[in-house]
Design a protein around this nucleic acid. Structure first.
Lengths: 246, 246
DNA sequence: TGTACTCTGTGTGCTACCGCACATAGCGCA
DNA sequence: TGCGCTATGTGCGGTAGCACACAGAGTACA
């Protein structure tokens, strides 16, 4: 399936000008991303950046106690490893594959070389970083003010946006880790949604049945983040957000 | 007191190479920052960036319900308005003066011009932005996992780091808004600290009496953020963090 | 076919924080 | 000196989420 993993399925790669593509694409490596694999640990010096095409990666913070929380979700619309071009080379977060798939990876040095040409690539990367900032900020307030029920809805929507179809492989245990809550709380929240016919799940597979209802039940955080990242990136890429290659 | 408001009291301005200072400093305007004033609202197109010298600014997210939460604190170590050079021109957050003082402001266009020279300024701004990202991420997990007691300690430390001396003007009501909790919860937490002799307060003035104890009572978030921003910026600026002009 | 394991459901008691209501106390200003 | 405002203290009932314990049920694999 050479077409279904074209680099352009990543929106950032797709948005690059032709001349940049010519320089970079030969150096892209398609890497299979297996569920649960860790792309980098806090403090690791980043060697690569990853452009997901059909995988989803979680940026996760882990505390001393072992408790954790997801601070951002990255899929085909983005990239993993902004610290590399921001100058820090590493971050205090962990990057974990949340949904299996593929990603293109690029040697950090090559990205930096392109970055230092100060062309469209730099501008695009910075705008993407700003959308990531918006997502993280919203996560912070969401953690403060919204119920697990609402957050589960938000999380499902954000994940589904990055996947083809309307179902995904994901246990409640895993969702709980990402949201930073108890597994039982997720069971409760998911049970309510299932009773209402909004989602359906069994043994690690979740299907969204009524997306509009899910949006209504979610907190505002979902749409705020979506609007902001559309504003920052959509016009650039010129590619509809839900575009999925057949 | 011309010396006490030298642009170099802002660490980012201080860290610029001499030739950049020559270009930019003539355009800096010293602006008094009054408590509670809003520098920008969500969605505003930013006209200026602000480099605080002895003021503190909160980046605040306000929800539809009116509930709010601080996502980052900015003082003399940083700048307000990263969205300007990140390419988005605006952000979904609000910037409010949390502690009165002064800041130098610079026309956005001048900053962007300098930014587009792709010199040291660009690198410095990006590294600062990364430290801001770290602070926001930590705020997100802190909101999820730590008690109001711990968060109050963290917040006091982060604020005190940005002020000379060991006291500040701040009501519990205001702190509650920033932390996104009830005023009474802050009263409780502050009362405990006062009973232990860690802080002392009355009618809108808080004094830290035992800083090391405050650090011990705080969650790890304080030191994690501090270490990361030191790593990203300290070596650059070459200026000790607690340096306060006499 | 059955066994082992993983995923999900449920109950009990506990704590932190919330929302509201109201009491006290320091400070500014007439 | 006293009035009024603002900051702080406190109590009470409600609820969300936690920790722990354990029960059922689906799936995989022998």
């Amino acid at each position: 399936m050479p077409q279904s993993v074209a680099p352009e399925r990543n929106h950032l790669l797709a948005a690059l000008p032709a001349e940049v593509k010519v320089r970079l694409f030969p150096h892209l490596e398609l890497i299979p991303m297996e569920l649960g694999k860790v792309l980098y640990e806090p403090g690791d010096t980043l060697q690569f950046v990853y452009f997901p095409v059909d995988a989803i990666v979680s940026m996760l913070y882990v505390m001393e106690s072992g408790a954790s929380a997801e601070i951002a979700i990255v899929g085909y619309e983005g990239l993993i490893g902004v610290a590399l071009f921001m100058g820090g080379e590493s971050t205090p977060s962990r990057a974990v594959i949340q949904s299996a798939g593929n990603a293109y990876r690029l040697r950090g040095q090559l990205l930096k070389d392109e970055f230092c040409r100060h062309g469209e690539m730099l501008l695009l990367m910075l705008r993407y970083t700003q959308s990531l900032i918006a997502q993280m900020a919203q996560t912070a307030v969401c953690n403060r003010h919204h119920s697990v029920d609402q957050q589960l809805c938000r999380w499902l929507l954000q994940s589904m946006d990055r996947l083809p179809g309307n179902s995904m492989t994901m246990t409640q245990e895993l969702i709980a880790n990402l949201l930073g809550v108890r597994r039982e709380s997720v069971t409760d929240a998911a049970g309510k949604l299932q009773k209402q016919g909004v989602i359906e799940y069994s043994r690690g597979r979740i299907t969204v049945l009524d997306r509009s209802r899910l949006e209504a039940l979610s907190c505002e955080c979902y749409s705020v983040v979506k609007k902001e990242s559309d504003r920052l990136l959509h016009t650039v890429a010129g590619i509809p957000r839900h575009a999925v290659d057949a």
